[in-house]
């Protein structure tokens, strides 16, 4: 499933999608950036409510396929343009992290 495919199936919208063909291979939920950096796998959709510029850096370094901001969290313009420049896909959903993971589980298996 590509990130673009994901946006068509689960209830979310793309805030920026510079790499729509990135393959989503799993999911990880976390807000502590060091924890996420140690545990998230390449290709994961990373569900979080943390939306500062460091979130984008962690996404770049771990190679996650996209960030999904849960609970309706959005990005400010500066962070958004950083994500765009770094090629990091950022989606936003009104779902809770749990509901989002459940939805992902339905489409990834």
């Amino acid at each position: 499933m590509t990130v673009e495919g994901l946006t068509k199936i689960i209830d979310c919208s793309a805030l920026t999608m510079p790499d729509p063909e990135a393959e989503v291979t799993g999911a990880y939920i976390g807000d502590l950036l060091s924890w996420v950096m140690g545990r998230a796998s390449e290709g994961d959709a990373w569900i979080t409510i943390m939306s500062n510029v460091n979130t984008v850096a962690v996404a770049t370094l771990t190679g996650v396929s996209c960030i999904i901001l849960a609970e309706g969290v959005t990005l400010d313009d500066e962070v958004l343009s950083t994500a765009k420049n770094k090629g990091v896909n950022v989606l936003s959903t009104v779902m809770s992290a749990y509901d989002c993971a459940v939805a992902l589980n339905g489409v990834l298996r």
């Binding site: 807000d31 502590l32 950036l33 060091s34 924890w35 950096m37 140690g38 943390m50 500062n52 460091n54 979130t55």
Partner: peptide
């Protein structure tokens, strides 16, 4: 509040 300071930095560095 920015998502750091969980005491994971040095352990992660060792782990990786």
């Amino acid at each position: 509040s920015l998502g750091f300071g969980a005491g994971m930095g040095l352990p992660n560095m060792k782990r990786y």
